[in-house]
């Protein structure tokens, strides 16, 4: 155990989980309804929302994704605990 996360991390993470969950639901729906323009508009709206939230979460937690999908801090902080099952 190295770092403890501040309470606002949990709040921000849950907001990101909520937006990402909407994206999962719309994604599965659109797989079967590819011509629903309103749902596509909504999907793209939440893609933008998630970018903001993801930046906010990463400013506290460090990179959320590996393999170049997130910027790294110096030193390399992808490997830092806590991991999702530990938080």
């Amino acid at each position: 155990m190295t770092k403890q996360l501040p309470p606002e991390f949990y709040e921000l993470m849950e907001q990101l989980q909520a937006v990402d969950f909407v994206l999962v639901e719309l994604n599965l729906y659109l797989d079967n309804h590819p011509n629903d323009s309103e749902a596509i508009r909504q999907f793209n709206h939440y893609v933008k929302e998630r970018k903001k939230l993801r930046n906010a979460v990463e400013s506290i937690y460090g990179p959320l994704m590996h393999f170049g999908h997130s910027y790294s801090g110096d030193p390399w902080n992808w490997i830092d605990a806590p991991w999702p099952w530990q938080v």
Binding site: E14, Q15, Q17, A18, V19, F21, V22, E25, Y46
Partner: peptide
């Protein structure tokens, strides 16, 4: 979105 996460759909 927050209700959806809680509901699972």
């Amino acid at each position: 979105p927050m209700e959806a996460l809680r509901a699972g759909t």
